[in-house]
Each structure stands twice: as structure tokens, then as C-alpha cells.
Design a protein around this nucleic acid. Sequence first.
DNA 1: CGCTGGTTTGAACTAATTCAAACGACGTGG
DNA 2: CCACGTCGTTTGAATTAGTTCAAACCAGCG
Lengths: 195, 195
Amino acid sequence: MFERRQTIACENEAASVFFNVVSGLVKLSRGSQDGRTQIVGFRGPGEFFAAAETGRLTATVEAVGRVVLCKFSGARFKRLMRVYPQLSARLFSINRRRLETLENQLFLLGRMTAREKVTNFLLQHGFDSIPAGAPHAHCVRLPVTRAEIADFLGLTTETVSRVLASLVRERVITVGKSRAIHLIDVERLQRESGR
Amino acid sequence: MFERRQTIACENEAASVFFNVVSGLVKLSRGSQDGRTQIVGFRGPGEFFAAAETGRLTATVEAVGRVVLCKFSGARFKRLMRVYPQLSARLFSINRRRLETLENQLFLLGRMTAREKVTNFLLQHGFDSIPAGAPHAHCVRLPVTRAEIADFLGLTTETVSRVLASLVRERVITVGKSRAIHLIDVERLQRESGR
DNA sequence: CGCTGGTTTGAACTAATTCAAACGACGTGG
DNA sequence: CCACGTCGTTTGAATTAGTTCAAACCAGCG
């Protein structure tokens, strides 16, 4: 169990462990000395993150909100792998999917405009998005701050804020209190999301 | 066997295959309708690329120079997996390493300056780099064009060219004919490579 | 010798950043 | 319940890194 903002594990930290997210959301990020950081992924309920065979984390893990985790030691995890052979195949296919996700993100970071980045984010990360009654009014509850969105998209908070503001002006979305965002014109978002 | 510029397989193409690179270099890339492309990786001799279980490639594969490949059909590959169980473990750990590489690339694309991107590229992709006699004069033979470097680093050819020019002006590197680049001041490059 | 594909260079432009300030939401404690 | 402080968000103005467009240049090659 970790509170908002708490660091769960650090980049390069020696730790032969496997964590499963029970509830809440964590972010995995890379940083440089001078303070720049890039979020390389989020993990929600049912998802996991783990140290490589080398026993080192490739990213810093931090709680986005209140988070409950289930921790397996390296040894215990190996035991599980032996008992459930299909687990190994499952991990393999999850890793494959993650590679694809990261490739997508490479295109996003390297080739998309700020607007495209943000619309993509809105469409993909409706973390607990509710496809509310009306077909054209999905509500996305974003548990992350503008700064975190920025660190994920390779932008600044200001730019994220400005893009959202312009989307509001154009009646494509509306932003409510406490990080709620309503997607009004999903089709338009999709058209503008590039790719 | 494929010649320079030849497309070996296309993004989303249905193809249950596994390719091993025997000699030469291929690039994996993602593209959008409007022509933007982002290279998501290179594969050199001894490395492989394959379709996911879904049987679709996640990227377009193109020959960088003349390339010799060894192709395994999906069925044949599965047979190999059964015969050599350690192969599966090996693939797993390679995928893990690839995840880490892509995470690095995310930071590079999202948070580094053009200069840092290029210096990183020079240091990492000495494809057939010769640690020549002198300790401070590594020679990198780049088999890729400026445009390809740009597509890998999320820049334009012009920017890549300009950064290289400025590195030459500052006597950190020299560029020879036919894509040879000599790294004069490796220490400086490392210092400037960010991270 | 003259193409062709790749590279370099310059000048103008623009998307996104930086810096600064005001604003709003939310929880805490008086 | 309200005042206060903190943290996050928004907005504006100025700046800049990188792009775009255009042209010249260069190397390799038939």
C-alpha cells in the first residue's frame, strides 16, 4: 500500500521482485540528473511490473494515487512460474504487446504534434472511462496531473493545458472539476489523433 | 536476399514468420498516411524480427543495405521452439532487453535536444565501429543515410546535418567520405549525450 | 561527362518552451 | 464554517529550438 507521490522503487535499484497492481495506478519513468523525466508507462489494476533478470528495475516506479500492490519475491515468483507453466507463455505475450505499445509511443513522441499527442492520450487513457449513456459524450476521469500527462507525452504542462483549452474552445471536449474530462466529439478527436 | 531500399514486409501485413538477419542491416519503422515515419529499431547480423502471435508485423521492415535473411515459417519456428526449450527463455530475455532499449528511446525522443539525440546515436550505433589504434579516435562507419538517422531520432535530415556540422566545427568529430565518421573526442560526446 | 541520390547551407518561419503571474481547488486547522 | 496555505492549473508575452522551403553542392557511377 502506497500513497500518492510515493516512490515504490528506483531506476537501477537492485531488487529481484515482481509487483502486481491490485488497485490504483502507478507510473514508470526515466529521469536524467538535470531533472528531465519521461514517463514510459502506467500500470493499472491487474497489470504488473518487474525487475529484469539482471535484478534491476529499468524505470522508477511511483504511485499516481493511492495504490495497493501485491509483491512477489524473485524466488516465490520463480516457484509460481514452475507451478503454472502457462504463466510463462502469458508473460511472453504481454511483453510482446508492450513492445508494440512502446513502438506506438515512439511514433507519438518522435513524429506527432502537441495536439495529436494530447488527443491520442485522451482517446487511449480513459483509465476508468465511462461510455456514458449518450453515444457522443464519454467521460474520462483522469487520475493524473497535467504535469504527468506532459511527462508522458514529451511536452510541458503549459502546452498540455493550452491544447486542452483550445479543444474546449472548439467544443470537442469540456473539462470539469477534479480532473474530469468529457469527450464531446469523439469522431473529431479520432480524426485529429493522427495516424 | 534483399537489395538496398527494398521493403521486406509491411506494417499490419498478415505473415506468421520469423526472420533472422544473416548479414546487412534492416530497419523497422512505423508510418502514418501523410508520410511521417519513425524508425523504431534496427536489426543487424544475428538479430531477428518476427510477427506477433496475432500473425501481424507491428512495423514495416526495409533493407538498409544489401541484406541476407534466414526465414522461418511460423510452423517451422514453433517446431524449433519445441526442440530447443532454452530458445524460448532466450527470446524472453531478448524481449526484455528490447523493452529496455525502447524505454531509453522514449526518453531520447521525448526529452532530449537535437544535439543530445545525435551524440547518443553516434555513441550507440557504431554499427561496425572500429576502436582504432588511437584511444581517442574511434571510426564509425554508418550504413544509414542522414534521412534514416533523422527518422530514428525524430528530427529532420537538415537538423541532423547541422548538428553534425557543428560537432565538426568544434573538433569533436570529423566526417569522411562514404558515411564514415571519426569520433575524435569521445569523452566530450559522452558528456554531451545527456543522461 | 552528366545524372542521380544524398548532403549541406542559408533565410524565414513556427510550434512549442520558458518565464512570470494570476487563478482555482482542496484540505487543514483555528 | 471560514481563512489560509499548498498544489495544481491556466493564461500571457517573449524567446528559441527545430522545421520548412529553396538552392547549391558533392560523391559515386553508368
